[in-house]
Amino acid sequence: MSASTVSASPVSTARAPRSRRRLVGWFILPATAFLLVFFAYPLGNIIWRSFTEPSTGLENYTELLKDGVSVKILVRTLVTGLIVAACTLALAYPYAYAMTRVSPRARNLMTVVVLLPFWTSMMARNFAWYMLEQRDGLIDDAFSLIGIDGVVLLGSVAGVTVAMVQVMLPFMVLPLYSGMEGIDKRLLNAAGSLGAPRWRAFVQVYLPLSLPAVLSGFTLVFILTLGFYVTPALLGSPQQSLIPQLIATRVSDLLDFGGAGALGSVLLVVTLLALFVVSRFVNLSSTTEKAVTHE
């Protein structure tokens, strides 16, 4: 892109921008150095400590396999991540689809609504779910009305899941919407005029075209969910804890950085694996950017 700009400009000015371009390159240095020292080094350090503390070797990792709790919690964390991603997708897909079908005005309103979790303070949000999910909270009351008593989500994985789905919805809806917007609706009509019933046109034409957006949204939500600490700590229970809680306890109660590092490394490997698999199909970083910039 920069090459075409240069060639397009007159020959006399072509030289100056090039030297300036090199100068501008130095602008990235402060942020790069900052992140290397305060992000990459700490991350590398804790991974290093997982192999060296208290003694050099794989002790922390074999311990993780043997202690009988960690593996169980790890599985629970991964399953919760998958459930959250699936529930988010189930709600987000129709929502994003509706966004492509309504008037621009309604679409603006739907965008504002889907961005609410971004705009609501994290602690305020978790506090709100705490109130909604407690015994005799609104959710419990609502279910009592239809004759189901004792739906207390607080202190359960279900309660954590609901709160996570809410905050993850924008990360799923926005990429889905921008993916679906690019689908030519006339293809559905074409399928229809060739005799396909609506459902079949949807399954065979629309769904495959929206699949890249689905895949990247799903992965993004799954990955982000793995690192949640506050939501499970406030809305979950110690009996049904997730990996982040385990890591936090190891560090703050026991100062066991080796053990915490081992758990963290496992989480990191899962994240990278998910990224790797999906990056073969879709461009995840553009999805992330879309979600962040609310496009």
């Binding site: 790069t32 350090n45 990996i243 982040p244 915490a260 963290g264 994240t271 992330t288």
Partner: peptide, 23 residues
């Protein structure tokens, strides 16, 4: 460098927090 800048968003947040706390 772009990946490095975006990485804090992708690495599980609890892992970032604990790593920073460690050093």
């Amino acid at each position: 460098i772009r990946s490095l800048v975006m990485a804090p968003l992708i690495v599980p947040s609890i892992v970032v927090a604990v790593s920073i706390y460690g050093v």
